[in-house]
């Protein structure tokens, strides 16, 4: 079942000359892990902001969990269904103690105290930050802060979590931490994840990759289908993962090798085949 559906979604920022999104029609399955890739200005962040009713469509419709995001009376239902994690962890942490920050959404929902306690403990455990419950957020590393921010969104018990470049401001180890937590969430709890990113390696971990360009969907498919189109990606000013590039460079026509080597192991397998041939 589709949890998010957009129908001919169009959006133009005030004072802008052209549309940031022009006719995006997509449907995202519940429980899937979707990565949205695109160059700067491709409209990927604008798209993400529509899934949470931060922006409302200029034309077309967005349905989140079956609810039209333009319906103001259902705003909280939309935001409860699709939680949003932003790029800068510093600018989304409200409280001065980790557990109080995770509790923020539950407090706004007016939940009873025992329920808040339960959810806070659960969500901190889900992102592996339980031992930091009483810490001050500004003393944590970037990756840890971003995991706290994720826990803060999870506490609403959303069915879908939308992340707008959550790793853009992190160092490589922080990035790995966050991506591991996200993958685990998707696999273990069946949470729908929509990851906006410009790291190919992160997108390769998803079930589905959507590439956007100039407000339109340019490519859509499994990571293998998308990343094997090395030339098409170059046209979209994106670089395929290094493994794919290597295989492609060795055998551009794809006579011996299939350009679907996403992981290092697959790449090694392909190279062995090449050497034998």
């Amino acid at each position: 079942m589709a949890i998010i559906e957009t129908k001919d979604l169009t959006f133009r920022y005030e004072d802008a000359d052209s549309d940031a999104l022009c006719g995006v029609t997509l449907s995202i399955e519940e429980g899937s892990f979707t990565a949205i890739l695109g160059h700067n200005g491709s409209g990927k962040s604008t798209f993400a902001k529509h899934l949470n009713a931060i922006l409302l469509p200029s034309g077309g419709k967005v349905y989140v969990g079956g609810v039209d995001t333009a319906d103001e009376s259902r705003l909280f239902d939309v935001r409860k269904t699709a939680g949003m994690v932003f790029q800068n962890p510093d600018n989304q942490i409200v409280a001065t103690v980790v557990e109080e920050d995770v509790a923020f959404a539950c407090e706004n929902m007016g939940l009873p105290q025992e329920e808040i306690r339960k959810r806070v403990d659960e969500c901190l455990a889900a992102v592996g930050m339980s031992e930091y419950a009483r810490h001050a957020p500004h003393l944590l590393s970037g990756g840890q802060k971003q995991r706290v921010a994720i826990a803060g969104v999870l506490a609403m018990r959303p069915r879908c979590i939308v992340m707008d470049e959550p790793t853009a401001m992190l160092d490589p180890s922080g990035r790995a931490e966050v991506i591991r937590a996200v993958q685990q969430l998707n696999r273990e709890t069946g949470m729908t994840v929509i990851l906006i990113t410009h790291h190919m390696e992160e997108a390769a971990l998803a079930d589905r990759v959507i590439v956007m360009k100039q407000g339109k969907v340019a490519l859509d498919g499994t990571p293998k289908q998308v990343f094997s189109q090395v030339d098409r990606l170059r046209e979209l000013s994106l670089a395929a993962p290094q493994t794919v590039q290597l295989v492609h460079a060795l055998d551009p026509a794809g006579t011996v090798l299939s350009p679907e080597a996403l992981s290092v192991e697959e790449c090694v397998g392909q190279l062995m085949k090449y050497l034998e041939a």
Partner: peptide, 14 residues
């Protein structure tokens, strides 16, 4: 706002 903040009305505390 994304975490449902809407002022002090009906807010509970941890």
């Amino acid at each position: 706002e994304c975490r449902l903040y809407h002022g002090g009305e009906g807010r509970t505390r941890l």
